[in-house]
Computed example of a mutant assay.
Amino acid sequence: MEDLLRPIYQEKASHKNTLGILMIEKVVQHSPVTDTFNIVLFVIVQNAEHPVFIKHYAFHDQKAALHIVDEQKVREWILYGSNRKVIDWLLNGKILFDRNEYISNLRKELLEFPKENRKLKMGLEFAKLIRRYMEGRSFFEKEQFLDAYNHVLHALHHLARLSVIEHGFYPEVTVWNQVKNIEPQIYKLYEELIESEEPLYKRLELLFLASDFLIHSKLDVGASHLISVLETKNEPWSIFDMYRHHELEAYSIDLVIMLEFLVEKNVLSIETVHTKGQGIYHRYYFVEKNL
């Protein structure tokens, strides 16, 4: 099928704004990496009219997909982890075209995983972990055990991704294979949750106890990025200022729940300022200086 697609990717390679082309082949049936397609052509371009453009092709009983993506969108996916299979494509895809070694350099960057990118990604995973954990605990307390199970499973996934990032790797689609070798106690929690023969409420009860410890152990690395941003100015922050900050906007809806968690853990403190309303105060956040 590669021969049939050659005219397509050769034509794309002839465009001066094409930076690189990768080919990803399906290696197992129903592969999530290629969305079950036999072949994916991944074309990275500069200054595209559309950030993402996709075409699908068919030949006899096979199918192929063409993804043309602006490099800024690729960078966004890498930084925020919002399209996980792209990491797999970039690291493992076959290079068909590489203008000025663009893809080779991008691969090198992914493998080196710059520290600043790591800090942000750990912060985002930690914020998602806190939200899922707290929502799961809330459902557990209301004896909604299936909903609690769903949220705890997601919380463990974010904990696993956080661990992989902490050790200097990008979390891939097969994150549990990664974390099994990196931090086996997290993998063990996951195994116990899904495989134990204990009643569901008992499994959840034990997991919440263990998760409390693991979340606390990740507090420093998980909060590091947010703390470093808040320390860039000497006065307390309003929530509005945080949402407007370019480095914090990626936290999105998880920012507030992470702030409240850090206040509860005495990592952040609150300053209140009078408003015009009697007994009503503005609420501002600052970092405890003794940390």
Rank of each mutant, 00 (worst) to 15 (best):
E166H: 11
V52K: 11
Y187S: 13
H167L: 07
L5W: 09
F59M: 10
D212I: 01
L22D: 06
H30A: 15
E183L: 05
I8Q: 06
H154S: 12
A13P: 03
E249K: 09
I44M: 07
N105T: 06
Y102L: 04
I130V: 15
G81H: 01
S238W: 03
L91Q: 09
S163N: 12
I44T: 04
S82I: 08
F213S: 10
I270Q: 07
N100W: 05
K121F: 15
E191C: 05
D70A: 01
V74C: 04
D3S: 13
L110A: 07
L156E: 11
V152F: 15
Y80T: 12
H56N: 15
P171G: 07
I227D: 01
I227Q: 00
N234G: 13
H30P: 00
K108D: 14
L124N: 06
Y57D: 05
L106F: 04
E198P: 05
Q46K: 13
V33R: 07
E143P: 08
A64E: 03
E125R: 14
T36A: 10
I280V: 14
I95H: 01
E288Y: 03
P236K: 02
I78P: 00
M23V: 04
E271K: 13
A223I: 00
S217F: 07
S14I: 03
E76M: 06
S14T: 03
I68S: 08
V86D: 03
E249C: 04
K142C: 13
S196Y: 09
W89P: 01
W89Q: 02
H30T: 13
H60S: 14
V221H: 01
Q46P: 02
T18W: 07
I182W: 06
F208G: 01
K121T: 05
P51S: 06
L219G: 00
Y251N: 04
L159V: 10
